[in-house]
Amino acid sequence: MAKPKVAFFDFACCEGCQLQVANMGEMLLDVLGAIDVVEFREVMSEIGPDKIDVAIVEGSITDHHAVERIKKIRERASILIAYGACACIGGVNGMKNNFKLDDIRKEVYGKDYKYFDSVETRAVHQVVKVDYKVNGCPVYIPEFVKVLKAALAGLPYEVPDYSVCVECKLNENVCMYDRGLTCLGPVTKAGCNSWCINNNNICYGCRGMVSNPNENGAKDVIAKYNIPMDLVVNKMNMYNKCREIDQREQPKKKH
């Protein structure tokens, strides 16, 4: 059986998630044994064929040019994997959506802003169909390998819809709230094996919110620990601003 043709693409992002591939270490050899990388701007100059099996897309969609380009990639690829927070949930680029588009264009591009195209930041699934998501900023490599295996086997991969706390407790970390810190673990989707907290950092919510957070309960918790509400909202919006597009465009789920 021929190895599947895999191509990497990037949009608005820091390319750090692609760099994670290089950071894989020994596992990289196993991965390269299972796939045939045909396009990867960070490491090679070749351009892949018209038809590819798997497109791995990093970055969010922030201008008309990107919209057209992602649509073309979608046409080329049998499977599209949104790769990293920017691609999966809009990520930090979503902060642009806090402002009026023209205001932010003026701020960034100055008086010539009219020549610079820009649209509301969108996650990849808010523009084209996405088959798999590898959340995280950056992606958690063991999860990327898991998703890759699912994609190669033609099986669905479901991002855990429980909070980071679950994995964090299994790792027996001291709770950040007990340390007096505000951590977004309780409302953020697991799957990263509480990577940040294992390394003494808080959770920034880079994997997106669980589908049914108890918002009132969370407000109570925040109040009890004497945490200002706007601080939490800002923290949440750092990665999750594009969630509003989902809420706006998708029919409300019953809960």
């Binding site: 429980y162 706390c165 679950v166 407790k169 409302v187 108890n214 309960g217």
Partner: peptide, 24 residues
């Protein structure tokens, strides 16, 4: 109304033993 469903209470409980079975 208070619960965040984080599962902390069951994970730390000495007598909670529910599990999931997963293939890797």
């Amino acid at each position: 109304k208070k619960c965040l469903s984080c599962g902390n209470c069951t994970n730390v409980c000495p007598t909670c033993y529910c599990f999931d079975v997963i293939d890797e």
